[in-house]
């Protein structure tokens, strides 16, 4: 398997990782939507180290999208805490949340590009809103990010509806990193793309980590993609964390459910839930 080398030392409990800064710390996170008899997330605990790519995997209904919404502070949990850069975003004052959000970027599954604006205007929007810079400086910044994600400069004048699926994902990544965030969240970055384009997006995520030293959290159900890019993997199953670790650790796990989910064993796993 053409797998990216794991995060230095790889092991979460190794001395190296103990010294690493924990960028995200989730403790006993419980989320229950009104009307649902059971919580969607049942006491989630995990952390993400600085500079690593953490992949959150799980099938449909496992709670990974709910977890992502919690991590990017779009929703509030029923209980538990989420610390980003040491600040509990569950009880954070609005101004601190504003500052925190400037340090993180989010690439949504469908791109979530503003359809009434060109790609260039999409990239410029956060810069115009939050930075007091000259227009030319901001244009240079947006062009740099566009070239970083290997998109042609002519893309700037195109509307999002004119882009292919792969280009749209790249443009969304460019917008997510335009403010030079320290932390990047990607929701299903390679979903719905053909294998070649999907592999290119995976390479791009690794490049973002290596070149810009970003901490990246990727939510995906694509096993191939996850195994390629992940330094560590969190496996979510029915609202609970089944296992957190490097791919080697997961493969060596004696938990049959983990093995089934990793292999996609059709006899024991609802494979459709992963598609």
């Amino acid at each position: 398997m053409n797998r990216h080398p794991p995060f230095p030392s790889g092991l979460p409990n190794s001395p190296d990782n103990k010294e690493k800064e924990r960028i995200i710390e989730v403790e006993n996170l419980v989320v229950q939507y009104p009307g649902n008899p059971e919580p969607t997330l049942k006491g989630i605990d995990f952390h993400v180290y600085s500079g690593e790519i953490m992949v959150i995997m799980g099938g449909s209904g496992s709670g990974k999208s709910t977890l992502l919404r919690q991590l990017i502070a779009l929703d509030k949990p029923n209980s538990g805490s989420i610390r980003l850069f040491g600040k509990n975003i569950v009880k954070i004052p609005p101004l601190d949340l504003h500052d925190l959000r400037l340090r993180m970027g989010v690439a949504f599954q469908g791109g979530a590009m503003f359809n009434s604006m060109t790609v260039g205007e999409n990239l410029l929007l956060p810069l115009r809103e939050h930075l007091n810079l000259a227009e030319t400086q901001m244009e240079i910044m947006s062009r740099m990010k566009l070239s970083f994600v290997n998109l042609d400069m002519s893309t700037l004048d195109k509307m999002p509806s004119e882009l292919s699926g792969g280009m749209l994902k790249r443009a969304a990544l460019a917008r997510a990193i335009v403010m030079d965030p320290l932390l990047l969240f990607c929701d299903e970055p390679s979903a719905g793309l053909d294998p070649a384009v999907s592999a290119a997006i995976d390479d791009l995520i690794i490049k973002l980590r290596d070149a810009l030293n970003m901490t990246i959290v990727v939510v995906t159900h694509e096993r191939t993609s996850a195994f390629k890019i992940a330094d560590r993997i969190t496996i979510l199953d029915r609202g609970e964390i089944l296992k957190v670790g490097t791919l080697d650790e997961l493969q060596n796990s004696k938990n049959q459910r983990v093995q089934d989910l990793l292999i996609g064993n059709a006899e024991n796993v609802d494979v459709n839930a992963w598609l």
């Binding site: 779009l74 959000r101 469908g110 590009m113």
Partner: peptide, 13 residues
């Protein structure tokens, strides 16, 4: 529906 409002929130807009 296309998560553009979520995108705005995530950009602190």
């Amino acid at each position: 529906l296309s998560q553009e409002l979520d995108a705005l929130r995530s950009m602190s807009i």
